[in-house]
């Protein structure tokens, strides 16, 4: 019996385009994950703290405001500052091609753009958390 994936879904920063994350929360739950949604407007530091408190396997970050290159690595930095290295970070939103490479280098994977199917995202999460 597979272990359940615990995932935090968050938009780290001043970005309220929450249609996508709300859809994903539902999709992740329907796929059998335990979903924690941060609510709107947490800072990257708050996202990291919630992730640690909730002991999640993965964080799904979404931004539509162009701040992904700043905010996503910030979340990672705050996790590392607290000595946490075992939480997978998955990105998504309006992310130009060249930025994806930059994010990958920072250990943020996925970086899914608009139109990505929910299945693709769910399979990716299963892969990076090594929970099937």
């Amino acid at each position: 019996m597979a272990q359940k994936i615990r995932i935090l879904v968050a938009k780290p920063g001043l970005d309220a385009h929450d249609r996508g994350v709300l859809v994903l929360c539902r999709a992740f739950r329907d796929a059998g994950m335990e979903v924690i949604y941060s609510g709107l407007l947490p800072t990257p530091e708050q996202v990291a703290s919630i992730a640690i408190d909730e002991d999640v396997d993965a964080i799904a970050l979404s931004l539509h405001n162009g701040a992904h290159l700043t905010a996503f690595p910030e979340v990672k930095k705050h996790l590392e500052n607290k000595g946490v290295n075992d939480i997978a970070i998955i990105g998504g939103g309006i992310i130009p091609e060249e930025d994806k490479k930059e994010l990958e280098k920072n250990g943020i994977t996925g970086n899914f753009g608009p139109g990505t199917s929910m299945d693709t995202i769910i399979n990716h999460i299963k892969k990076v958390t090594k929970k099937f």
Partner: peptide, 18 residues
């Protein structure tokens, strides 16, 4: 931009990158 929409100045920490 988002900082203006939320009422944060450009020099506020929350506006970083936005």
């Amino acid at each position: 931009d988002m900082p203006t929409l939320y009422g944060y100045d450009a020099d506020n920490d929350r506006s970083k990158g936005e």
